[in-house]
Every structure is written in structure tokens, then in C-alpha cells.
Computed example of a mutant assay.
Amino acid sequence: MKYARPIYVTRPVLPDLPDFLSLLEDIWSTRILSNNGPMLRRFEAALGEYLGVEHISIVNNASMALVLSLRHFGITGEVITTPFSFVATSHAIRWAGAEPVFADVDPVTLNVDPAAVEARITPRTQAILAVHCYGQPCDTDALGDIARRHGLRLIYDAAHAFAVRHDGQPLVAVGDLSVLSFHATKVFNSCEGGAIICPDAATKDAIDLMGNFGIVDETTVTSVGLNSKMSELNAAFGLALLPRMDAALDARKVVASRYWARLKDLPGITCLCDPAIPGRNAYAFPILVSPDYPLSRDGLYERLRDEGIFARRYFYPPIADLPMYCELPSASAGELPRARRAAREILCLPLYPDLAEADQDRIIGLVSAP
């Protein structure tokens, strides 16, 4: 029987309303709504402390953050990236004036495969844009080694990797730059927003300048910039939410652990993200639905929808199969077999901190006995 209330793949965490209203009162008292105001500066400081990073530039969304990152390094040639991601990753490369080149993924993590990356390098290659898919860390050592040996910039799309730690360190501190997303679907959100984690103050200052039209002061403009500023309202939302994040992350792991315990041995189903691994954030619960399962992946997707349960095929189709990219040589038929197989088999089950146990039991039951 279909649920009266739909269950979506995610549901945003909200700040405690009194905390948010208190910050709104501060905004009302200043009447500063944008232009890197005091609320944004408070948010940057608090977020940097929470994540364990020193230099962070908050922007209006992660797509803009990716464009700014590529523009900061003057990337106009080829950027090797993954075909298994949200389309914004490749779109940002194009908007920055560069060209994506797709490399296949690792079959276990579904992150871009370093060996496949190195095989795609040409004299036109200028950067690697890798994605920590579902918050699982890329092989950062191997990618870093490739970037150093070939003189490439290494940028991470860390949209899924809020608060993830790897080898005891913040994952977002790895690479030349890392980009976070604070969209409403993410582990942490400011309704809309994003951030660039910078290695030093000079880089942060340069990105902040580019994101403020290139304006230095009232009469001085030094470069052709963009407008990437986050509003004070969004900054207040994010600032009010930060105190809830430890509890929200713990609750996500409880939900993910229930899925893992009951689905990891199910024939035809492969669970990808073990919530017991230290430092992970349980961003999603992706499964691969193989031909051994009684239903196809799309059959299971529709079966759940019939019951009002909206799982998502993150990421299908692969970016390389979209009309604006499918003519690229790296996207041609016969290339990217692991990414294309993953796109055919992937399904992300609903996961958010307050997913009721009874609702989760229903989802698990439908997957276990379709």
C-alpha cells in the first residue's frame, strides 16, 4: 500500500528556529543583506573551525565555486574528470572555458581511477577535477602523485564530503583547492551555497576578489570578476545549523548502519559505503543492483515509487552520454565501461537523520523481497 506521505531520497536538516530567528534579528538591526557582511564573516570563521581548515571562501553555490576554482588557475585546456557525477562537475569545466576529458572509475569506490586519469593526459591537459563520490575519498595519494609528476592542478569536487576525515585529516584540505556544496540536498546546507577550501590566505583573497566582480575598493577594479557572494540570510541559516551537525552526522550513520546490516548479504545487491569506516559522513546509501537480483535496477526503482518511496539513480545517465558531451572522444562507445555499468546499476536509497525506523524497515523489506 502506497504511503500517504512520500519518502524522498533525502530531507534537509534545519537549524533550531529560535537560533535562526536570533541571527535574523542581528541582520534586521544592521540592514546588511549582502556584500560580505558581518554574518558571512561569522559563518566563514565558524565553518572553518568546525571543518578544521584555516582558509575558506564561502560562495553562493558549488557550481560557481568550481568555475572560480578553474578560473583562478587560468585553466582553458583539457581537464580530466569523472563521467560519474552530477552534471554540474562537467558543466563548470565548460563554463570556465575548458574542455572535460572523461576517465573511467574505480569499480569499488566509483571515484575516478588514477590509472585511467594518467592514461588520458596529453600536452593539452592542465588539471584534474576529481569527485569524492558519496563522500568516499578518492585515491588522493595516487592523484596527487600524478598531478605533481605532470605539472597539473588538482581540484576536488567535495560536494558530498562535508566533515569527512581521511587519515585523520580533513579531506577538503587535500589538493590545490576543494569545493563544498551547501545545497539543501547535502549533509550540511545553507539552503543554497558552497565554499572553496584554500591552501593559504593569498589564494582566498584572490578568489574573494574574483567573486566580487574584481572590485578592490570604491574606485578600483583590477580584474574581470563574477558575483559569487552569499547573502547574509543564507549565511545566518548555515551558522545556525552548525551546532546541530554532530548530532545529525551521528544520526545519519545510525540509518546507514541499519541498511548495511540488513542488505549487505542480499544476493544481487552490492552496498557501496560502509558506515563503519572512521571519518565518513554517511552522505548516501548507494547500492548496485546486479543481473542476479530478481528485478532490474529500474524495476526496483519503479517498485519503490509505486509505494511512494523516491529512491534516486545517482548518477544516471553518465555525463558522457548527455548530448552536450557524448561527441567527445573520451565519451565514445566502448570507453568508460565501469562508469557506464555503475550508471546502469546504481540506486541511492532514502537516507536522512530523522528517517523513521518504521519507514526504513518498509524500504528494506521492499528491497529484500521485491
Score class of each variant (00 low, 15 high):
residue 151 G to M: 04
residue 152 L to S: 03
residue 108 V to Y: 14
residue 125 T to G: 05
residue 95 W to Q: 14
residue 82 T to Q: 06
residue 117 V to S: 00
residue 100 P to V: 07
residue 103 A to C: 10
residue 165 R to Y: 06
residue 151 G to T: 02
residue 94 R to A: 12
residue 139 D to W: 10
residue 120 R to T: 05
residue 133 C to S: 13
residue 109 T to C: 07
residue 121 I to H: 01
residue 155 I to D: 01
residue 136 Q to R: 14
residue 160 H to L: 13
residue 97 G to L: 12
residue 89 T to R: 01
residue 155 I to G: 00
residue 101 V to G: 02
residue 100 P to Q: 09
residue 84 F to Y: 15
residue 87 V to A: 15
residue 154 L to K: 03
residue 103 A to H: 11
residue 157 D to M: 06
residue 119 A to F: 00
residue 147 A to K: 05
residue 155 I to F: 04
residue 148 R to C: 00
residue 90 S to I: 06
residue 120 R to W: 09
residue 94 R to E: 14
residue 162 F to H: 07
residue 164 V to A: 04
residue 151 G to I: 06
residue 98 A to I: 04
residue 109 T to W: 07
residue 104 D to F: 06
residue 139 D to V: 06
residue 124 R to E: 15
residue 134 Y to F: 15
residue 141 D to V: 15
residue 141 D to Q: 10
residue 144 G to D: 07
residue 127 A to H: 01
residue 148 R to D: 04
residue 138 C to K: 02
residue 94 R to S: 12
residue 124 R to Y: 08
residue 154 L to H: 06
residue 127 A to S: 07
residue 163 A to I: 02
residue 97 G to V: 14
residue 154 L to D: 08
residue 112 V to D: 06
residue 94 R to Q: 14
residue 135 G to S: 09
residue 136 Q to G: 02
residue 138 C to I: 06
residue 140 T to F: 13
residue 91 H to G: 09
residue 88 A to P: 01
residue 163 A to F: 13
residue 141 D to H: 09
residue 117 V to G: 01
residue 140 T to I: 14
residue 88 A to N: 14
residue 105 V to L: 07
residue 150 H to T: 03
residue 89 T to C: 10
residue 151 G to K: 08
residue 149 R to F: 03
residue 134 Y to T: 05
residue 146 I to L: 07
residue 105 V to E: 08
residue 116 A to N: 03
residue 89 T to L: 12
residue 101 V to E: 02
residue 132 H to W: 12
residue 127 A to Q: 00
residue 103 A to I: 13
residue 150 H to I: 02
residue 85 S to N: 15
residue 100 P to R: 05
residue 129 L to R: 00
residue 151 G to N: 06
residue 154 L to Y: 10
residue 95 W to V: 10
residue 131 V to L: 15
residue 92 A to E: 03
residue 106 D to N: 14
residue 130 A to D: 04
residue 151 G to F: 04
residue 117 V to N: 00
residue 125 T to I: 09
residue 84 F to T: 10
residue 135 G to I: 04
residue 118 E to K: 09
residue 106 D to M: 08
residue 125 T to Y: 08
residue 83 P to I: 07
residue 134 Y to V: 06
residue 86 F to K: 12
residue 142 A to C: 08
residue 132 H to K: 07
residue 139 D to S: 02
residue 109 T to A: 06
residue 142 A to S: 10
residue 86 F to M: 11
residue 147 A to D: 06
residue 141 D to K: 14
residue 156 Y to T: 01
